[in-house]
Amino acid sequence: MKFVIAPDSFKGSLTAAQVGAVIARAIRQGMPEAEAAVVPMADGGEGTVDALVQATGGTLIEHRVSGPEGEPRTACYGEVGGAKTLSAVLEAANIFGLPLLPPERRNPLQTTSRGLGELMRALLDKGCRQFIVGLGGSSTNDGGIGMLSALGARFTDGEGNPLEGFGRDLTKLRHVDLAGLDPRLKDSRITVACDVTNPLLGPQGASHIFGPQKGASPEQVALLDESMARYAVLMEAALSLRLRERQGAGAAGGLGFAFMAIGAEMAPGAQVVEQLTGLKQQIAQADWVITGEGRSDEQTVFGKLPWYVAQWANEAGKPAILISGSLGADIEALYDRFAACFSTVPRPSTLEACMEEAERNLEQCARNVIRLLARQRV
């Protein structure tokens, strides 16, 4: 019997590779004769770089960039593929991710996407022309002006003073000059892994939907959306192209809009990762598929990683099992895709305790699942 284990990370406690290793260990204990193939997955958020490097045998590299508040920090990117297909894998989450800031310091007026542009420019200098960028988990709402500034664009206020590229600078922005954008971007292929379909502006846009979880007050949300609208007018005039309504323009606080402006291709994160890992081919050879995430609920059906994995398993005629850190109240729709759904939490507990005991709880749950499948074979 062959198992394919293709989980997302359990955010804040276990990486996708760690989750896969724990489940594989449970399989070895309960079915010593079974084969277990671990394929760490991600959907563009936290853990995308690690998952792709682990799954493809790539290389993890550190580089110094500007962090969410403009402070120096060390971020990681991955190099994956062969000499002719070498790609750099980057993620917003490990450069200016929301968890990098304590709750009391979360304020999208004070954060910037500049570090991502700095890293891309360094990679262009290194000769890289293929980029895969995950946008999930950001702390920013700067419309991508931080990233674009680092790549050579110029943003100024009403008096011609240059703006640094923080969320607060959107309120001062009056002029956009894209002439200085790095010309090497035109020769580059940029694939943005993103499952967010929100437009840039309005009630479903970047500021209104994601601003509050990044620390924005209602007044700040209104200010940011108004300023983002002025930014969109200026950018679209410079580009002679309308982008604000496109799906994903509002991703990562408008960073999706900025990537569209430099010709990037937007794609569902899970599908981008699958293409590099070859997960579908492995599923075709499996008897069972196991996936999971930190929490599964009604939102899982709207394109989260486990939903994609289950869909690919269903297409191949393979049963899929979901093992997640917790299950929400409304999971009925999950049974359309999964043979069974399990939560690893064995008893009433605090979030802190669940995080501390994540590995032990996962292993116990996985062992029970595998013992049940082993019994079924008798």
Score class of each variant (00 low, 15 high):
G70L: 11
A333T: 11
A258N: 11
E118D: 13
L234A: 08
D8K: 00
Q285N: 03
A222Y: 00
R174K: 15
S349E: 13
R28P: 02
W312T: 04
R377V: 11
N141M: 05
R189D: 08
R189M: 09
A92W: 07
A51T: 07
G82R: 13
G20C: 06
V378M: 01
P212D: 14
P203K: 10
C128N: 09
S240E: 13
V378Q: 09
Q18T: 06
G57Q: 07
Q130F: 03
A55L: 03
S149L: 06
R189H: 12
H208G: 00
G152M: 10
Q220M: 12
I262H: 05
A92S: 15
P99A: 08
A339S: 12
S66F: 04
R106H: 13
M41R: 01
G205F: 01
I370N: 01
R377D: 05
I61K: 15
P102R: 08
V4E: 00
G328T: 04
S324P: 10
Y335G: 07
I190N: 10
A93S: 15
G146Y: 04
S138D: 08
A284Y: 00
L241I: 03
V289P: 07
W312N: 01
I323E: 02
G152I: 11
Q29M: 07
E219R: 12
Q204E: 15
R174P: 01
V369H: 06
G143Y: 06
K214A: 06
A286E: 05
G12T: 04
N94F: 04
D157G: 12
S188F: 03
S66A: 14
G143K: 10
A92I: 14
C128D: 00
L185T: 05
L372I: 13
G67D: 08
E356W: 00
A51D: 09
N361H: 12
F3Y: 15
A353I: 07
V345Q: 13
A261P: 03
L109G: 13
T277R: 05
G254K: 09
H63C: 10
A26D: 04
V192M: 11
A310N: 02
T112A: 08
L163N: 10
I61L: 15
G137Q: 11
N314I: 02
C76P: 00
K214Q: 10
G292E: 06
D157P: 11
P162Q: 12
S188P: 09
G97N: 09
G317C: 11
A340M: 09
M228I: 01
E356F: 03
L181R: 03
I321L: 15
A252W: 04
C194A: 09
P218D: 14
K304L: 01
A6W: 02
T111R: 08
L181Q: 03
G250H: 10
Q364C: 09
Q299D: 13
A329M: 03
G57T: 01
A232L: 03
N198E: 08
G134I: 01
G70M: 13
